[in-house]
Design a protein around this nucleic acid. Sequence first.
DNA 1: AAAAATTAATTTGACTATCAAACTATATTT
DNA 2: AAATATAGTTTGATAGTCAAATTAATTTTT
Lengths: 148, 148
Amino acid sequence: MEKVMNINSTLNDVLVKLFRNVNAIEERAMRTEEYKDVTTNDMHVIEAIGMEGARNMTSVARSLEVTTGTLTIAINSLVKKGYVDRVRSEEDRRVVLISLSEKGRRAYLHHRRFHERMIESVVEELTEEEQRILAKALAKLYHFFRVT
Amino acid sequence: MEKVMNINSTLNDVLVKLFRNVNAIEERAMRTEEYKDVTTNDMHVIEAIGMEGARNMTSVARSLEVTTGTLTIAINSLVKKGYVDRVRSEEDRRVVLISLSEKGRRAYLHHRRFHERMIESVVEELTEEEQRILAKALAKLYHFFRVT
DNA sequence: AAAAATTAATTTGACTATCAAACTATATTT
DNA sequence: AAATATAGTTTGATAGTCAAATTAATTTTT
C-alpha cells in the first residue's frame, strides 16, 4: 500500500492554511518597493473603486460591506497617500465622488497582475477539462459559504 | 467579439470572493448561541493552542505569526471568557503555559466540525477524479503562496 | 559566586479597522 | 416653507496589531 493522503484531509489542510494566511500572504506579495504603504485593506478599497471612473461613497461602502463611516476613514488615508482622488459632486452637493489617481491605477494593475500570476500557477499543466472541473468545485465551495 | 466567460476569470472571481469573505463567513458560522463571544481571531488562537496540551506563549505566537505582546492581549481576553487556562511553568518560572479549558476544547471541536462539513459539502457530488483535480490545484495554489 | 547576557512574557504607546449613533449639509416631498 | 430623507463625516467605543520598554527568571561568562 503506497502512502495515500486522504483527500478530505488534504483539502481541509490546504483550505485552512490558505484561508488562515491569505491576508498576510497577499500583503507580502503586494508590498514591493513602490507600494510599501498599501495595506491589504487599502488594496481591497482600491479594487472596489475600480478603473471604471468615479463612484460615490455609499456604493463603494456597500461593495465592501462596511459602513460609510469606516470607508471615510480608509479614504482619508488613501487620499493622503495619493492613491485616491476625492471630489464633491456638482450635480448633488451631498455626494462625494472617489476615483483612483494615476498612482492608484498603477497599484490596481500591479495587484491584478499578482492575481493573474496566481491563477496561472494554479492552472498551468491542467487540461481544459480539468480547469472546468476545478471551476465547478470552487463554485460549490463559494456556494457553501454564501448559504451557511 | 462575443461575451465569453474565460475560465481564468471564473477561477479568479471565485478565489477572490472566497478570500475576501472567508473571515466574515467563518465568523458567522461560528457565532452560535454557545460561542457568541468568540471572534474569528479568538478562534484562530484556540486552534493554534490545540488539543495536545499546554504550550508556551512564544511557540503559539510563532504559529500565529504575531508578536508575543499581541498574543498576551488575545490570551487575556480568552482567559476572561473562560476558553483558555494560563499557568506559570514550575520548571522555568519565566514561561507561561496556555491550554484549552473544557469550554475551549468544545469550541475547538465545534469549529473543526464546521470545517468537516465544509469539506464534505464541497466533496459530495464530485467524482474521485474531480476531487483529485481540486486537491492538486489547491496544493499548487498553496505552493504559489509559499514561494511568492 | 557575582556580574553580564539572554530569554519569556507583559506592559505601554501608537496606529488602523470597525461599528453605531450623532451630526452637518443638501435635496426632495408634502 | 416645513418636514423628511439622503450622503457623508465625526465621535466614542472596542479589538487587533507592532515596536520598544520593562520585569522577572535563567544561563553564561568572568
